[in-house]
Design a protein around this nucleic acid. Structure first.
Length: 953
RNA sequence: CGUCGUAUAGCUCAACGGUAGAGCACCCGCCCGAUAAGCGGGAGGCUGGUGGUUCAAAUCCAUCUGCGGCGACCA
């Protein structure tokens, strides 16, 4: 038997079937960098309209985790897809560099209580190292961007511009100074972040204190009594006697029941449920005169327990209602010192107490101010027993005992800390304080809410979320008491606290210094040099403030400090102003950034420009393990992006990101990744087949006008055009998880299961340069053009790898836009007709499967088919003529007319003819040519004659 | 606890008031000229639970449960 394999046009390509991604991707990354692909794309796109996705800066601490990878890959997919859609889509990555976590890292490595200069120097160096580490991992993911010139919030110019932003919001009248309770360490003489707080057991004095009636008639009325027969008091319980001198209110729960009890020491009010326990503790007996709910006692005033001890305490405390009051311990009544408790502060403020009315006798070192009656100059912890003693003297102490409880301690000093109202700087949400006659026309809250309405959200529920956050948030505390942060370079009057009259000029002067030497310049500058040492406006009267800005203000200002704000393209503002544009088309981050970066950026931009810095917001969820659980080191279900890159390849990670619906959680597991790998293999193999079968195709020499193609080739072109249209629509909506299965199904069903399967016969057996074969290659060539570009934003490595094979000598696929298809004239009719043909094909395949099960055939080519059909179906089948058998991949196919659909049927038989040794079809004319006894007629013609005519398939 | 999401076949996703679909995985078979490939066929869901609205509910409403985000001087 002659071997005819050499006479076939079998596919050939160096494009390997297996990607070997983990090993080969780093090489491609390197090439992209060496060939400066990103810069080439910029040059090629310079004339196009801009699409600006402004990068939200990751924090420069720690190696990237899977969430970072998701974020950057999504951004990369969007940037690439917008660029290929014909935009100049820039990507300038950035890093958030200041803040407490880095300070803590420095403390861990170099010890605590370093001088500020030292901390800043170490922090700056550390952040730089972290950025380089993270950058390597980001680049490894195939993310293209301006990695040579990223933005950093610690860049000197960025730091300086941030100070200028502060100056502008001050000038516009949004900034004021006020009180706020914070965690305070006396040894640090500073506020602490929550992360710097530890809990440990502490022994305190727990005291029960009576606040005597000041308005007995109102108390009587609240309990439904005509009058009270004797004096009495409301009783509170506290473990912080040192807050008693600062008491300014009492809290009761509006719904709890409170009793008025007649005891040996007068009438007492306490929660009904706690009467028995407390009377026993106080060794009293009593009878309940009446009960009422807390709400009835609202606003009734009581005497301070130390009122009789010193006139300085002769004041009244009103009852404010609060849901946070519990019946766990104590009396059901809580004493409220607004300067030293968060709930106390909020409650008193909401009842109209002004900052200036709040008593703040505890100084930063934990000692009572000289103005505090009775206890001046005492350290609060040492004052506890003294206060208790005074209360006893006053007759208002019902009980005292030692009490061990869990209490906040400083992470550094292991000493107890307190909540302490301290002076902070705020941006006003509702009532702009104004600045020297300047005052915004509307409140920041109103402006921001309007800006949200004008913003597009992906997914849509983000709008309501951000809206409700802005609607409900309190004033923004801009100041922090930290070292590694952008300073608020203010001078305030030592007595009045007023800002220096030349504040704006000082800010600009400091900005200039910072521009040269970084934030460190503010640390080292001599105040005398800025405002002079003598005179009313000098350092004699004004002191330098050490506060830094909230790090959220750093990243919240990047629309100005990086993008350059309005006019940044031309006015030289911003680290990347000329190339970017304000507002950005999009900010894209995890959904936690509604409260973070989206939020802070919105507020700063609204203060500066009255609008959001973005036109649209896209949010993605968080990555969870396959079982829906959060990933955590302790559970051990953490999936590291570096590990995936090193084993499966970053391409697989990219495909996983693209195929997951990011609007909810993104779950990842070994099985999920395995499925992604399967999908990848299928797509890769399909590409390989197309590359292999077009390897001898030269579009310059072999291109044919579409109308000269075979019908099925034109149909395939239409399918690809439809795919591209649908996929691009998904890209435009940023719904990549909808696009990926479309591509996958196209490869599997339309190509693998249909078109390519049918095409093999023609590609392999027709004469190499025949019209029939070239027509197929034309179609494959256009399909590949489209498919590679369509895939490129997601499967960047593979698309690029294939592109080099497909288009040798071209720098990169990313220089190209989506493919412009030639339009077949009869596209719609073909689509309809071939859909019908494919239905019939499916029915035939079922029939053939039955024969296979009955062992009548193996290969479908062993069968001959007869189809009886009516109407359109008949016409469609008949129109293919002799080519129908190729569509069905059978050796013979005949069509017979029947009158109506009910009479339609399909039958198949095993061919009785011999198998052509070359094309494997079973034909009556095999051996008809004596010189080539093993061949069928068309193979003889294809090899030695004019070639078989093919018009349809 | 509050609030915003989310829950459909083993996995990833469709169906957006009208008989639950696809790809992959799985099972069976074919092929051996895409070959650590390719083709065909098949099985597999009380759409998280419960109650409602409706002629009709995966879809609308309520409630419960699981999971997750946010509620931090953390980023």
């Amino acid at each position: 038997m002659a071997d005819y394999k050499d006479t076939l046009n079998l596919p050939d390509t160096p494009f390997p079937m297996r990607g070997d991604l983990a090993k080969r991707e780093p090489g491609w990354v390197k090439e992209w960098q060496e060939k400066k692909i990103y810069q080439a794309i910029r040059a090629a796109s310079a004339h196009r309209p801009k699409f600006i996705l402004h990068d939200g800066p990751p924090y420069a601490n720690g190696d990237i985790h899977i969430g970072h990878a998701v974020n950057k890959i999504l951004k990369d997919i969007i940037v690439k897809s917008r660029n290929m859609a014909g935009y100049d889509a820039q990507y300038v990555p950035g890093w958030d560099c200041h803040g407490m976590p880095i300070e803590r890292e420095i403390e861990k490595k170099h010890g605590k209580n370093l001088p500020t200069e030292k901390t800043q120097a170490l922090a700056r160096a550390y952040a730089g190292e972290q950025i380089e580490r993270q950058k390597v991992d980001f680049v490894r993911l195939g993310v293209l961007g301006e990695w040579d010139n990223p933005y950093k919030t610690m860049a000197f110019k960025t730091e300086a511009d941030e100070i200028r932003v502060l100056g502008r919001i001050l000038e516009k009248g949004y900034v004021y100074r006020g009180l706020k309770p914070v965690n305070w360490c006396f040894d640090c003489a500073s506020a602490l972040a929550e992360a710097e707080v530890e809990y440990a057991d502490k022994e305190d004095l727990a005291i029960d204190v009576a606040f005597p009636f000041a308005e007995p008639e109102k108390v009587a009325a609240a309990f439904g009594l005509p009058a009270l027969a004797k004096d009495g008091a409301v009783v509170i319980w506290t473990t912080t006697p040192w807050t008693i001198p600062s008491n300014q209110a009492l809290n009761m729960h509006p719904e709890f029941s409170y009793s008025l009890v007649d005891t040996g020491r007068g009438l007492l009010i306490l929660a009904t449920d706690l009467v028995a326990a407390n009377l026993e503790k106080w060794k009293l007996t009593g009878t309940t005169l009446a009960t009422t709910v807390g709400a009835k006692l609202s606003e009734i005033k009581f005497h301070h327990p130390l009122a009789k001890m010193d006139a300085g305490y002769d004041r009244l405390s009103p009852v404010y209602l609060g849901d946070y009051v519990t019946l766990d311990t104590g009396t059901g009544i809580v004493h409220s010192a607004p300067a030293y408790g968060v709930e106390d502060f909020i409650s008193c403020k909401s009842h109209g107490m002004k900052d200036t009315e709040i008593l703040t006798p505890v100084m930063g070192n934990g000692v009572y101010a000289e103005t505090l009656p009775l206890f001046a100059g005492q350290m609060i912890w040492k004052a506890n027993p003294v206060i208790t003693e005074k209360l006893k003297d006053s007759g208002n102490l019902l009980h005292v005992n030692k009490y061990v409880h869990s209490y906040m301690h400083c992470w550094r000093h292991k000493t107890p800390i307190i909540y302490r109202a301290s002076t902070q700087w705020f941006a006003a949400m509702d009532t702009p304080p104004g600045f020297r006659g300047n005052k915004p026309a509307e409140s920041l809250r109103e402006t921001a809410l309007r800006a949200i309405d004008a913003t597009q959200f992906f997914p849509g529920w983000g709008k309501q979320r951000l809206h409700s956050m802005i609607a409900n948030r309190p004033d923004w505390t801009l100041s922090r008491q930290r070292q590694w942060g952008v300073p608020m370079p203010f001078f305030v009057h030592k007595e009045t606290g007023e800002l220096h009259p030349q504040t704006l000029e000082i800010l600009e002067a400091v900005a200039k210094l910072v521009e040269q030497n970084g934030i460190e310049a503010w640390q080292t500058v001599n105040p005398d040099d800025l405002i002079g040492a003598v005179g009313a406006n000098s350092t004699a009267y004004y002191e330098k403030i050490k506060d830094t800005l909230d790090v959220w203000f750093d990243s919240g200002s990047t629309f100005q400090t990086v993008m350059g704000g309005p006019g940044g393209e031309t006015n030289g503002m911003g680290s990347h102003g000329p190339q970017l544009r304000y507002p950005a088309d999009m900010y894209l981050e995890g959904s936690d950034q509604h409260r973070g970066w989206f939020h802070s950026s919105l507020l700063v931009s609204c203060m500066l420009n009255g609008r959001a810095p973005y036109d649209s917001l896209l949010t993605h969820g968080f990555v969870v393990a396959g079982d829906g659980r959060k990933m955590s080191k302790s559970v051990g279900n953490v999936v590291a992006p570096q590990k995936i890159s090193d084993t499966l390849g970053a391409e697989v990670l990219r495909l996983w990101v693209a195929s997951t619906d990011y609007s909810g959680e993104l779950s990842i597991s070994d099985e999920i990744l395995k499925r992604v790998v399967e999908a990848y293999r299928r797509i890769r193999n399909t590409l390989r087949f197309m590359l292999a079968n077009t390897s001898d195709f030269d579009p310059k020499a072999h291109a044919l006008p579409v109308k000269e193609w075979l019908e099925i080739d034109r149909y395939a072109l239409g399918l690809a055009a439809e795919l591209q249209h649908n996929v691009l629509a998904d890209y435009t909506r940023y719904e990549f998880h909808a696009a990926v299965p479309k591509i996958q199904i196209f490869c599997s069903e339309d190509l693998g299961g249909f078109y390519l399967d049918i095409l093999k016969d023609r590609l392999y057996t027709a004469a190499k340069g025949s019209h029939a074969r070239r027509s197929a290659q034309n179609a494959l060539w256009h399909l590949t053009q489209s498919l590679l570009r369509l895939m490129a934003p997601i499967l960047s490595f593979t698309a690029e790898e294939a592109w080099r094979e497909f288009n040798p000598g071209d720098l990169t696929i990313f220089l190209h836009t989506y493919y412009a298809f030639p339009q077949p004239e009869d596209g719609p009719e073909l689509a309809q007709k071939w859909a019908q043909l494919r239905t019939v094909r499916g029915e035939v395949q079922k029939k053939l499967e039955d024969m296979r099960t009955a062992k009548e055939i193996g290969s479908s080519l062993q069968a001959e088919v007869e189809i009886r059909a009516a109407g359109d179906k008949l016409k469609a089948l008949q129109s293919l003529g002799n080519d129908l058998r190729f569509v069905l991949i059978t050796s013979q196919a005949t069509v017979t007319h029947v009158d109506d659909a009910a009479a339609e049927s399909i039958s198949a038989t095993t061919s009785k003819y011999a198998k052509c040794e070359r094309c494997w079809h079973y034909r009556s004319d095999v051996g008809a040519n004596k010189e080539h006894a093993g061949l069928c007629g068309r193979c003889v013609s294809n090899l030695f004659g004019p070639g078989e005519p093919r018009a349809h398939a």
